[in-house]
C-alpha cells in the first residue's frame, strides 16, 4: 500500500510542528525519516497512524483518505511508538495475543501468528516472562512483534533500534530490510549509519519542513556540488606539482595536506571530475601518482548543513 502525504500541517499553539509537508512512499520502499529533536518526525508518524488528527492537508493510504476511513485503515498499519510503551505486568505471549485480538486477527490464525512473531523477533527464550522482567533490547523486540502481529502492509517505526546491543541492531536492521521488500516502511531515527544501512530513501525534515529527499547518493551529490580528491604524487617538487595542478582547467582549488609527503587536496570545478586530468598530468610530467581517493561527504555533514541555521 502506498502512502501519499499532501500539504500536511499541524500546529501546537502558535508553533508549527509540521509545516506543509508532502511526500510519497511506495510499496517495497523503506523510508528513513531524519531530523533533529523536535523537527516533527514523531508528529507526522502519529498523524499517519491516526493517533492525532490532521489539521490541514491530507494523508492517503492505498488511495483512500485517512480522514474518511480512520478505523478501517488502522488495520493495515503496524506502529511502534517512540518510547515503546508496554504493559509491564503482562506475559509476552498474553500481550501478543491481546494485540492480535485488537487488530482483528482471525481467532484461528492467532496462535500461528504469535509463533511466527516469537520466531522472527527471537523471543523464544523469554516468551513466558512478564514484559517487566525483560531487558530493554527484548522489550524493543516485543514492541516490534506487536507492531507486526497482524501482518500489516505498512510499518511505522519510531526509533526502532534504540536500546539494542550491536548484534541485535544488525539483526533488527536485517529484519526490517527483509520485511521492507513487500511492505511500506517508514522509520525514524537519528542514528545516521542506520539510515544508510537500512533505507532506500532518506527524508530529512527540520522545523516541520522537508529539507532533503532522496537516496543517500543523491543527497551527497546535491550537498557536495564539487568533487574533492586527495592525491599523493612522488618524484617531483611539491611547489612544481601544486602550480601544475592549479593550472589544470578542471580544478578549482588545490591545497597541501602534507607538504613533505607531497599530499594534496584537490577541489574540482562544479560538476566536473578532474581525476583524468590529474592522471594525464602526471604521465606527461613523469611524476608517479601513488594515491588518489575521492573524499565522500559524510551523511553527518549533510545532516548538519541542512539542519543547522
Amino acid at each position: 500500500m502506498d502512502i501519499k502525504i499532501e500539504n500536511l500541517t499541524k500546529k501546537y499553539g502558535a508553533q508549527k510542528a509540521v509545516d506543509d509537508i508532502s511526500f510519497n512512499v511506495k510499496t517495497g520502499e523503506i523510508l528513513g525519516f531524519l531530523g533533529p529533536n523536535g523537527a516533527g518526525k514523531t508528529t507526522t508518524m502519529k498523524m499517519i497512524t491516526n493517533y492525532i488528527g490532521i489539521e490541514d492537508g491530507n494523508i492517503e493510504i492505498g488511495g483512500r483518505s485517512i480522514k474518511d476511513n480512520p478505523d478501517e485503515l488502522k488495520k493495515h498499519i503496524g506502529y511502534l511508538p517512540e518510547h515503546n510503551p508496554l504493559y509491564l505486568d503482562m506475559p509476552v505471549i498474553d500481550y501478543l495475543k491481546f494485540c492480535a485480538e485488537l487488530q482483528d486477527v482471525a481467532k484461528s490464525d492467532i496462535p500461528s501468528r504469535i509463533r511466527e512473531m516469537v520466531k522472527i523477533c527471537g523471543l523464544n527464550a523469554e516468551k513466558h516472562k512478564k514484559i517487566g522482567e525483560l531487558s530493554k533490547g527484548y522489550r524493543q523486540r516485543v514492541g516490534l512483534a506487536q507492531a507486526m502481529i497482524h501482518d500489516p502492509e505498512i510499518l511505522i517505526l519510531d526509533e526502532p533500534t534504540t536500546g539494542l546491543d550491536p548484534n541485535q541492531i544488525v539483526e533488527i536492521r536485517k529484519l526490517i530490510r527483509d520485511i521492507g521488500n513487500q511492505k511500506t516502511v517508514i522509520l525514524s531515527t537519528h542514528i545516521l549509519p542506520e539510515v544508510e544501512a537500512t533505507c532506500d530513501r532518506i527524508l530529512i525534515i527540520n522545523k516541520g519542513k522537508i529539507v532533503a529527499d532522496g537516496t543517500s547518493e543523491t543527497l551527497r551529490k546535491q550537498s557536495q556540488g564539487q568533487e574533492i580528491i586527495k592525491v599523493k604524487i612522488e618524484d617531483g617538487s611539491s611547489n612544481d606539482i601544486i602550480t601544475a595542478l592549479q593550472n589544470l582547467a578542471s580544478t578549482a582549488m588545490v591545497d597541501f595536506v602534507d607538504k613533505n609527503q607531497n599530499k594534496f587536496e584537490v577541489h574540482s570545478q562544479p560538476n566536473i571530475s578532474s581525476k583524468r586530468d590529474i592522471f594525464n598530468l602526471c604521465v606527461e610530467k613523469k611524476w608517479v601518482l601513488t594515491e588518489m581517493s575521492s573524499q565522500e561527504t559524510k551523511l553527518e555533514d549533510i545532516f548538519r548543513n541542512l539542519t543547522m541555521n
Binding site: 478505523d71 506502529y79 511508538p81 518510547h83
Partner: peptide, 14 residues
Amino acid sequence: KTGTLELLLTKSIT
C-alpha cells in the same frame, strides 16, 4: 501515564 494509550488507540479500535 505509561503511554500505552497511544498503543491502544493506534490499533483498530475506536
